[in-house]
Structure formats: structure tokens, C-alpha cells
């Protein structure tokens, strides 16, 4: 029997950044498990989530790095950002301070990733309209000025969560297709998996059932 096909053609590395408590882990959990984590513990260090998605008929495995928002974590930021193909930058629409800090997060992202890294701005907690502290228009303008993709989303209701993760992947894939992202560059954050491996590559081997890939 010939080597079976991979069930994905690319791995994209994503990172999620933003202040403490903006809902980074909840967004990740909503995306990978399609569930809202009601009382999410503070993230310590880094957590990983994976999910296989499809873009233009290609299966892509997303490897998502979720970090603690705390300042003390800055010690390991370099390796965190290294090789990220996508960065989701999150603020909380009900807390203006988390929005005000975006420029410093953006500086980090720009300095520590490569120029092709797709940065997506997410205004989380859009279900809490009554407590809104940052208008959509204001954030949209910030995103446009800085060349960022932007959506308001809710990890609680799931609104726009899929869209944010998938749009980022589409943009990365588009960059690969039009040649602006060089896959051979060491830090592209994208790993192409050849479709007919020569028996030395490790394929995906996730068990099919939910229990198998326990949290």
C-alpha cells in the first residue's frame, strides 16, 4: 500500500495577542470546540489549539498559539512571534484601555514577525452592546490606517469567530498563491506538506473521535 495522503496540505502558525482578559483563550476555544468557556482560567505560558480547515479546496491545519496577556510573559515573546503566518490582535469593546494598548501590541507584531504576516484585529465581546466603550467606526478607522483586517466578534455567542480565523487563512493562502509569501523563507510560518511524501514525513494522526483528542 502506498503512503496514504496527508489530510492537510499546509500548516499555518497563528498567534493571538492582546491585553489580559480580552477573551483570547475563549476565542480559541470557541473556534476549536465551538463552545463558550464560561469561567476560563488565566492562561499561564502558552496554550495550543489546532483545527483543520479548508480554503479553496485545500486542507490547512491551523496551529494556534495562545499566550498569557501578562507583561511578564514578554520574556519569551521572540519565539512566540517567530514564524507566525497570522496574528489575531484582540481588544475588548467594553474596556477602552485594552484598545488604547493596541499600538504597542502592533509594534511588537510588526517588529517580531515578517512583513507578510497577516494581522487581524478583533473587537471581542460585541454581545455586550450596552457596555460598549469603543465604537465600531473608531476601530475600523484604526484598522484601515494600519492595513489590518477587522471584525467585531463574540466568543460567547460565536458571532464572527469562524470568520476571523478563516478570513486570516484565506488572506495567507492568497499571499501564497500570488507569490508575495515565499514558502522557502525560513520564517514564513507556513509549512507546505507535499502531497506525495516519501515515507519520511509524519502525517496527521489525530484520532477521529472527540474523546481521542481530549483537551
Amino acid at each position: 500500500m502506498a503512503a496514504g495522503p496527508y489530510n492537510y496540505s499546509y500548516i499555518f502558525k497563528y498567534i493571538i495577542i492582546g491585553d489580559m482578559g480580552v477573551g483570547k483563550s475563549c476565542l480559541l476555544h470557541q473556534f476549536t470546540e465551538k463552545k463558550f468557556m464560561a469561567d476560563c482560567p488565566h492562561t499561564i505560558g502558552v496554550e495550543f489549539g489546532t483545527r483543520i480547515i479548508e480554503v479553496s479546496g485545500q486542507k490547512i491545519k491551523l496551529q494556534i498559539w495562545d499566550t498569557a496577556g501578562q507583561e511578564r510573559f514578554r520574556a519569551v515573546t521572540r519565539s512566540y512571534y517567530r514564524g507566525a503566518a497570522g496574528a489575531l490582535m484582540v481588544y475588548d469593546i467594553t474596556r477602552r484601555s485594552t484598545y488604547n494598548h493596541l499600538s504597542s501590541w502592533l509594534t511588537d507584531a510588526r517588529n517580531l514577525t515578517n512583513p507578510n504576516t497577516v494581522i487581524f484585529l478583533i473587537g471581542n465581546k460585541c454581545d455586550l452592546e450596552a457596555q460598549r466603550d469603543v465604537t465600531y467606526e473608531e476601530a475600523k478607522q484604526f484598522a484601515d490606517e494600519n492595513g489590518l483586517l477587522f471584525l467585531e466578534a463574540s466568543a460567547k455567542t460565536g458571532e464572527n469567530v469562524e470568520e476571523a480565523f478563516l478570513d486570516t487563512a484565506r488572506k495567507i493562502y492568497q499571499n501564497i498563491q500570488d507569490g508575495s509569501l515565499d514558502l522557502n523563507a525560513a520564517e514564513s510560518g507556513v509549512q507546505h506538506k507535499p502531497s506525495s511524501p516519501r515515507g519520511t514525513q509524519l502525517s496527521n494522526d489525530q484520532p477521529a473521535n472527540k474523546e481521542g483528542c481530549a483537551c
Binding site: 476549536t32 489549539g49 489525530q206 477521529a208 483528542c213 483537551c215
Partner: peptide, 25 residues
């Protein structure tokens, strides 16, 4: 053989290919 593996894959339930690692769990 290759086709079989591919068709087996299509039968996976949606979302089964995701995983999430967390301390809280």
C-alpha cells in the same frame, strides 16, 4: 488503497479534527 483512506476521512464528524490543550481541563 489511497481512495479508501480518503473516503474514510470524509466520514469524520465535523469538528473532530480540532483539539485544544488547556490546563483547566
Amino acid at each position: 488503497a489511497v481512495n479508501m483512506a480518503a473516503s474514510g476521512e470524509d466520514q469524520r464528524p465535523r469538528g473532530s479534527e480540532s483539539s485544544f490543550s488547556s490546563h483547566g481541563h
